[in-house]
Design a protein around this nucleic acid. Structure first.
Lengths: 129, 129
DNA sequence: GGTTTTCTCAACCGAATGGTTGAATACAGG
DNA sequence: CCTGTATTCAACCATTCGGTTGAGAAAACC
């Protein structure tokens, strides 16, 4: 339903019930009924949550008799951590550079915007005129 | 609006436009108008997105004349990475233990009383010797 | 003081979300 | 074959979400 994979994963984990399910599935596989037990919602609602997690690639279900054991797929986590780490590092590096800049010039700021090159993925020019 | 912090952060990053804003803010602070420029939505929509990011603690705004420069707060990322890493590690450890277990017992316990149900997606090997 | 710029608030709209109940499907077993 | 169990599908409902337009609010500039 949702467009890109990253949005699906973030969106799937934006719900506390679904995060709790993931937490419990990290301990071990479980059936839908087992998963539904602790919550006071219907089994159908849990089944829907599972579908969201499955669409995000976070869990897989294999038919085994009439039960459908749910299994956590941990690889998708990397998608998020990569994204997060990338921009956190970028932000922290910028912070560090700003610190250096401030440290190196006690006065006389406001003249040089930082000399960093055009950023990859920046699809927008500052035609500041 | 008053969901838990973790839900707010995940939810905030579940939108591609907001993720793009975060990516751009990692490069440097920006005003609402500057942020709105590349997207073909109204400034009000961007302002709303910013409110979501701010409620999640991902950005902060400081009034500076009539402009409100937006600043990325990278610490909140840790909230997510901690949660993610915790359960990924747990799942991987469980995997490792399961591997050891399977390695230690040569015969499979899950003997199928009925013949193969011709169902796709069977993932455990029945090496019928 | 009045205007312009920047930004937010309010009301509204359509689509998605999370929940429900009820019916259907698939399989195990008497 | 019939029944029970596990799960999903379908329709519905209330709320949220992302977007719009239109009206403020606050500061800078004339």
């Amino acid at each position: 339903m949702a467009a890109d994979p990253l949005s699906r994963v973030f969106s799937a984990l934006a719900d506390p019930t679904r995060r709790d399910m993931v937490a419990r599935l990290a301990v071990g596989d479980a059936t839908v009924n087992e998963l539904a037990e602790p919550y006071d919602v219907t089994v159908q609602a849990v089944s829907k949550h599972l579908k969201v997690l499955a669409d995000a690639g976070l869990v897989s279900r294999t038919r085994e008799a009439q039960r459908r054991p749910v299994h956590l797929e941990a690889e998708v986590f990397d998608l998020m951590t990569k994204w997060i780490e990338r921009y956190r590092r970028q932000a922290e590096e910028r912070y560090r550079r700003l610190d250096d800049l401030l440290r190196s010039m006690p006065n006389d700021i406001t003249s040089t915007p930082s000399p960093q090159p055009a950023q990859t993925g920046e699809r927008h020019e500052h035609h500041h005129a």
